[in-house]
Each structure stands twice: as structure tokens, then as C-alpha cells.
Amino acid sequence: MIWEDYTETIMDKLDQYVHAATRDNTRSSYQSAVRHFEVEWGGFLPATADSVARYLADHAESLSINTLRQRLAALAQWHIAQGFPDPTKAPIVRKVFRGIQALHPAQEKRAKPLQMEQLARVVHWLDQASETPHLTGKRADELRHVRNKAILLLGFWRGFRGDELTRLQIEHVDVVSGEGMSCYFPQTKADRQFKGSSFKVPALSQLCPVSAYLDWIELASLQDAPSLLYKADQ
């Protein structure tokens, strides 16, 4: 009985570590990709190399190269996790994918970056939006607008991803008013080795992320909250 309990505990830990090795948004996109192959396209799992090649050919003109590459990665991950041979590495699949790249070299669409003038207008709107609830005592609305301003400016000046900002811990931020701040992320998308990354954020004369962060922390009375989002919508 003791050995069974020990084995169950070890297996639970293994499942926990395997789960932590894949980001939540990646896991979700992989599940969606596998569902598209199996349910919407009508493929069978485990898949053959020929069926994967046909799947690519059927969607060569409707899906981008990056999307097709992501679909292949999802199918590969599913087969490996289930203990089946990976059909995406077969020569026929590789040749079809290279052929699609050659015949459909359409430029990938990229979102246009937010411009300074646009940033200034959004910040101005947030400042105005936070004044009314401040006067009327609607604290939740005021907290949300001030929080959004801090997150917007932090993300803009350092290029942080949205999911990274939502996981930023108060205890991982060191700030000196008028000088700057440092943010530590235990994990980022580029940090494949899980070593953690630190980023410096300078204080600025306009559209300052440091002053916006301090305004949010002071207004929300945050000291050891789980993240920057804490209490924002309460």
C-alpha cells in the first residue's frame, strides 16, 4: 500500500512537470490544431504520413505557412505524447511543406506597431476615464483605468507580451521614483532554459511607465499581491 501511494505521488509529480513544460496558450493552440485535423477536416488519429500530406495540400491556399507549421508541430506533439511514430517527419510531408513554401510565398501579415501619437491618445483617454470614477467614488473603475495605463506603458516601452505582464509579480519589481525600475520574469517566451530574465525600465519625462506603475501600486495599496492584475476588477 505504501509503495502504491509512493508510485501515485511520483506519477502526479511527473504529470505536473510535463504540464508545466508547455505554456498554456501553446497547449490550447495545439489542442485546437489537433481538433481541426480530426474533427473539421475528418482526419484519423494516429495519422499516416500520407494523410498529413493531404491535409497540408488541402489547406495550402487558405492557411499561412506559419499556421501550417504550427499545425504540424501540434500533430507531432500529439503522436509523441501518445507513444506513436511522428508522421510529420516523413519525407513526403517535408516535401509537400517545402512545395507549399515555394508556390505560396505570401508575405506573412504582421500587426502594425502602436505609434507614439496613438499611445499618447490612449493614455490621455485613460487619464480622463479615471477622473470621473475618482470623483464619483467608483473605485473599481478608477483602479481598472490606472492599472491599464501602467500595463500599457510597461508593455509599450519594453515590448512585453500580454501573458508576461499578467504574470509579473509585485515582489519581482524594484523601482526608484524618478530613476527607473527593474522587472524580473521567471519565464518568458524566449527563455527556453527557464533561467529567468530581468529588464530595466527607465523613468521618462513623458508617458512614463515608472510613474504610472507607482500610481497604480499606491492607489491599489499593493505590496505583496500575486500580480499587477490583482484587485483591478474588484
Rank of each mutant, 00 (worst) to 15 (best):
L56Q: 02
E131I: 15
V52A: 05
I100Y: 01
L229S: 14
Q223Y: 07
Q223E: 14
Q107R: 15
Q128E: 14
Y213T: 05
D215K: 04
T9E: 12
R94M: 06
T26H: 01
L219G: 02
W3D: 15
K13R: 13
K89C: 09
L14E: 09
V176N: 03
L214Y: 07
A190W: 03
Q169D: 11
A47K: 06
R35S: 13
F194I: 09
H79V: 08
F199H: 08
Q128R: 09
A150P: 05
D233T: 11
S227I: 08
R71H: 15
R71G: 00
V146T: 15
I65F: 07
L45E: 12
L228K: 00
I65Y: 09
D174R: 13
A150E: 05
Y184R: 06
R192G: 14
Q128V: 04
A76H: 10
T88S: 09
H19T: 10
T67Y: 01
D141H: 06
P209N: 04
Q206D: 09
K138V: 11
D127C: 05
L204C: 05
E218V: 12
M11Y: 11
V176L: 05
W78G: 02
V176E: 13
R144D: 03
R139Q: 15
H145L: 03
E8P: 02
Y184G: 03
L56F: 10
L219F: 08
S211T: 14
F185W: 10
S198P: 01
V122Q: 12
I151K: 05
F185D: 02
I100A: 03
R158D: 04
M11Q: 15
A212N: 04
Q31E: 14
L165F: 07
P46I: 13
L114F: 02
K195G: 12
T132R: 09
E131C: 06
V146Y: 04
E108H: 11
G99N: 06
F97M: 14
Q187W: 08
V96H: 00
G162K: 06
I92M: 10
M116D: 11
G43V: 11
R71F: 05
L229G: 14
A47D: 10
Q187I: 13
Q128S: 11
D191N: 04
V39M: 09
S197L: 12
G137I: 03
R71M: 08
Y213G: 00
A140P: 00
S130A: 15
T88M: 10
M11G: 01
P133N: 02
V39Y: 10
Y30M: 05
D24P: 08
K109C: 01
F97Y: 10
T9F: 06
Q128K: 12
L222P: 00
S51H: 11
L228S: 01
S205A: 13
P113S: 05
R121F: 07
G43E: 09
L68W: 01
F84E: 13
